[in-house]
Design a protein around this nucleic acid. Structure first.
Lengths: 148, 148
DNA sequence: GTGGCTGCAAAGCTTTTGCATGTTC
DNA sequence: GAACATGCAAAAGCTTTGCAGCCAC
């Protein structure tokens, strides 16, 4: 599938991007980045940690936090807004929208029409300069809809 | 202004709504509800607490948390999604969109066109049933835009 | 009077910080 | 070899919980 080849390409480009940003390339950073690029979920630090621990049991949770912060600072990933108490991260930097399940809390990405085009309507913006936008759809995913 | 009369009406209706939901009406609950209805901000528990403390110094932070949870459960208020580490609450239950300032973190409400009408485009929804939606506009508010 | 609510204090999570050791370049 | 990253442990937030006393109904 073309999609996964594209992801692999981003992973291959990571060491160069990393050094370009003035960061050293370490196994821990490669592991965190690869995991975030590959998943369609929006994992929390704890989830990143336990996933990576399967392969590299010596990694520490504090390191995961430090790496995520650093990646945010360098613009490699971004934080997703959530209503619950944990941070969630996303390596998909293309503008896209979210389906948020009120049942299980899962967040699914969907591509928007032309999200760059959206502007707030009316004159209530008070000089606000829009840089980007995303739609949050709340509801129930396939699994949870069948239960409710 | 018609707007503030409408808010006052919601505050006046609160004791009845409260009892209707099987809750006792206490000064603390009235204070929390009034504060949330009146503000156009989206205060965190800590902010609710310190605001109410000015008038009723004996209220405790744990009580504020319990009241906010109970109000959520009863559908009087809702939690707003944020990227930072604190919960924020909103008593404005009408569908509306948000302007989120990347500079100062402030979240401003704006009314959408006809938000009920929005549906995710394409066929990537995988059986997801949309209940509601809101647009998050990211950018810089009037104050922060002039600095940047 | 009773059940539910409040306030206090303690505990539980998530996240951050400091520092010695280890790794990348 | 120097600068930076990691891992550990401790600390710092934010939030939840348990329980005795108090208040609304």
């Amino acid at each position: 599938m073309a999609q996964s080849a594209q992801l692999q390409e981003r992973i291959n480009a990571f060491p160069t991007a990393c050094r370009g940003a003035g960061l050293k390339v370490t196994p821990q950073r490669v592991a965190v980045y690869s995991m975030l690029v590959k998943t369609t979920q929006h994992p929390s630090p704890e989830e990143v940690y336990s996933e990576i621990r399967k392969l590299s049991p010596s990694i520490s949770l504090a390191t995961v936090y430090k790496i995520l912060d650093m990646f945010m600072l360098k613009g490699f990933i971004r934080r997703v807004s959530t209503q619950d108490q944990v941070s969630r991260y996303d390596a998909n930097l293309a503008p896209h929208d979210h389906l948020i399940c009120s049942g299980c809390g899962k967040i699914q990405d969907i591509m928007g029409d032309e999200p760059q085009m959206r502007q707030p309507s009316g004159n209530q913006t008070n000089g606000f300069q829009v840089v980007s936008s995303e739609i949050h759809y709340h509801g129930f995913c396939g699994d949870c809809a069948s239960v409710n």
